[in-house]
Structure formats: structure tokens, C-alpha cells
Design a protein around this nucleic acid. Sequence first.
DNA 1: AATGGTTCCTGGACGC
DNA 2: TGCGTCCAGGAACCAT
Length: 297
Amino acid sequence: MPELPEVETVRLGLADHAVHRRVTAVEVLHPRAVRRHPGGATDLESRLRGKAIEAARRRGKYLWLDTADASDDAALVVHLGMSGQMLISDAGAPDQKHLRIRATLDDGRELRFVDQRTFGGWHLDDHVADPYAAGGDGGELKVPESIAHIAPDPFESVFNRDAVAKRMRLRHNEVKRAILDQSLISGVGNIYADEALWRAKLHGARLTDGVPVKRLRELIDAATEVMAEALAVGGTSFDSLYVNVNGNSGYFERSLNAYGREGLPCRRCETPMVRESFMNRSSFSCPKCQRPGRKLA
DNA sequence: AATGGTTCCTGGACGC
DNA sequence: TGCGTCCAGGAACCAT
């Protein structure tokens, strides 16, 4: 499941292999892979064709390529969803089983979007001034209009941990819901949320307005640390030819302390970890280290 | 207005 | 062995 670290690995690969290339042809093989794009697959094919790729950017789990041609300078926005991959393939390489979109580049290679579960997709979008940019006068940074509601992630200079913790404290919902809310802090998905909660010794069902701001700051720091560690591993574990990624950065097998560990001993206190359903998702926690407290949702 | 629930999708794991 | 059922998850969308 691609979360921030995996998406950043993809971005780095795109910076190496797609930036400074020009798109010469686009073929959408599955219409569902073009999401949130007015005009749909046909329009994306025609508008993306001919555009030069100038930069690869990311905010949270969203990725976008700044592009330009004579008519406009749209962003190609990419979300990997559950199972999306961005691959650089040689021309003539066999189509991947779940190949959804093929963009041919001017070096003869192809940028391919492969996505088994079709939760991800591409769309073209105009840029707007980043609403989170410091100063507030529009400023340097621009983001695609459709993701203007996505908050900065912890690795951006505009990210303000203390402000996020305060905003979180003002909410009336569960801590896990808050750390997963991309309009509050972006980049964290279900897996790293459980890891962060375990590190911060917080139960995800605690209500934010019942948790001291200090503990919320610790939670944000824990999420940042977990993702930083995954970034350090993920950035080095892929064949550079592939802009790859599908979650299996090697980090998962070795380093997870909470996610997927139902029945296994807590790595701090040996108590068997438990699994609970939360927000229609699985949550893993230590019943001793992470007390839900009185205020269960 | 803010919060919570529903929905999209496919294939691997699992039970009988 | 084969078939059916459940489950995984991001985030837009809709309901309250």
C-alpha cells in the first residue's frame, strides 16, 4: 500500500527517468484509470500528448508532473491508490497484466501506469497558488487545483507540527481518524498510522479533545519518524530502471511493530497484540501500552 | 459546518 | 480440487 515513503520513491524515479522527456503518445487502456478528469480518457490522451515534463512533485500521497506545451502548463496528477505503480518500460516490452495507461516518451521508452485494483488514476489539472505557502500572498509554490485541500506533509518546509497538533486537539473525533485525515496532515495511511500510534503509546479510538496537545505532538513526531525510516530504506531498494514501487520496500517485513501483528508479542512489553475493526479498517495495537481509556468512540 | 458512513475494485487467502 | 466468501485500503462522495 503506497503511503508517503513509497510515493516519494516513485517521485525520485520519475525525476530520473521522466523529467526532461516529452510525451509523444498516450494510450488509455482502462477508462477507470482516468479519474476526476473532465473530458475523460480521450481528452487526457489528446491534451497530454506533446507536453514536456518539467518536474516531478509530491504532497503527501499525491504525485504530480509539471508539464508544458504551447497551449497550457497543466499538472499531470497521479494517485497510486491501493495498488498503483508507475513503471518505465522499454518500448516493446510485454504489457503488464494490469496496464491501464501508456505514455510514450521521446527517448522511446514508456511511462506506464499499472494498477490491479483500479483505485488509483491520472488527471490533468491547472495550477493554483499553494494555500499553505508561508506568507499567504500566493507565493512561490503552486499546486494542482484539485489537491489544494490536501495539507502539507511532515517533510515539507511549510509543515507546522505545533499548529497541526493544536488543530487536531480542537477536533471531536478519534485520534486515528485525525492522523489519517489528509486535510490535516498528509501522507499517513493505515499502516503507518498504526505504527505511529504504537510508538506514541496512544490508542486510535481516543478522542482528540481528550488527549493533551503534548501527546498529539508526540504522535505527529512518531508518524514522521516512521515515514523517515521507511524513506531511508525505500529509496535504496529498487532497481533504478523501475520507477517502481508497490509497497514491498522490504521495510514492511522487517520493521513493523504494530500492523499485522495480531496475537504476536508487543515488542515493548510482550503482551499479545490485538486487532480491532475501526473505520471499516483493521487496526493493530498493544492492549497494555495503548490504553483506549474511558472515552471510546 | 463538521463528522461519519458508504462506495468503488480485484485477486489472494481461506473454509468446506 | 474447486468453488464461494471475505478482506484489503484511499479518498471522493453523500448523509446527517
